[in-house]
């Protein structure tokens, strides 16, 4: 590797975050942070926005626009909504970092996930382009919907896992392996709690072929994600297969 190449690579914060070298990750939380927050916000808007558009475009162009707005909103609302809680949990669980550093750390992991999602958006767009259109027979539509849903679940899971592994590496810089794991688990639990409910409220994303295109469902604020999962579980356990 040439010095020129490494110099040019280090100029771009995104490649620095993705490579997750221990020294560069540690320095990420130090120094002037306003420009880094702006960079993270921009990356999240662009990355998740593009991915959201590719997610919704199978249903309708308007759905693509809605999801391009909603997906960055979920990520940012989760980061901001849990900022205080995450900032308190970190020192309580043994990782001695401040509120600003905590927020920047979480934002960093969301930025990595957004970058991965953004990079996958041309591929998901290609997948949607190859999927049967909504005018196809219902059987074919159900298959396409299932395939698109599965692909999105896999890609989002991959992006999420990768981002959290990077976050774990960052936390290890401040408090060792065991403490870093504890903090990460606590943050994940908090973010999952808030993020899943935000996703529930802001549904639909892919857009079911038989339902209307809309920014929010009429019953968006009725019930919650966990209530729905609980109902489904009890229904299944009661033998209604």
């Amino acid at each position: 590797m040439t010095a020129t190449a490494s110099k040019s690579a280090s100029k771009w914060p995104l490649s620095l975050l993705l490579r997750a070298e221990p020294t560069s990750l540690g320095s990420w939380l130090e120094g002037t942070q306003a420009s880094r927050v702006v960079f993270c916000l921009a990356a999240i808007f662009v990355g998740t926005g593009l991915y959201g558009a590719s997610m919704g475009c199978w249903r309708a162009p308007l759905q693509a626009l809605f999801v391009a707005v909603k997906l960055p909103l979920i990520v940012l609302l989760t980061a901001f909504g849990n900022a205080l809680l995450n900032g308190m949990l970190a020192p309580l669980l043994g990782v001695n970092i401040g509120l600003r550093q905590t927020f920047l750390g979480v934002l960093m992991s969301f930025t990595i996930a957004a970058a991965i999602l953004g990079a996958f958006s041309p591929l998901t767009l290609f997948m949607v382009w190859n999927a049967p259109p909504l005018t196809s027979p219902p059987d074919s539509l159900r298959g396409a919907y299932a395939l698109i849903l599965l692909a999105h679940v896999m890609i989002i899971a991959f992006a999420g896992i990768t981002a959290n592994v990077r976050l774990l590496l960052l936390l290890q810089q401040f408090g060792g392996r065991a403490k870093a794991r504890r903090v990460l688990f606590a943050w994940l639990a908090g973010n999952f709690l808030l993020g899943s409910q935000l996703s529930w409220i802001l549904r639909p994303f892919i857009g079911s072929p038989e339902l209307r295109v809309e920014f929010l469902r009429a019953e968006a604020f009725q019930g919650n994600f966990y209530e729905c999962v609980w109902r489904a579980l009890t229904w299944l356990l009661a033998g209604h297969h």
Binding site: M1, A5, S6, S8, A9, W12, L14, S15, L18, R19, A20, E21, A115, I116, G118, A119, F120, S121, P122, L123, L125, F126, T162
Partner: peptide, 23 residues
């Protein structure tokens, strides 16, 4: 090539490669 380029860049970065976007 165009639609696979972003994911190639991301995967190489995630692998710890020091190759820049140009390379």
């Amino acid at each position: 090539a165009i639609i696979c380029l972003p994911s190639l860049y991301i995967f190489t970065c995630l692998s710890g490669s020091r190759a820049g976007l140009g390379e």
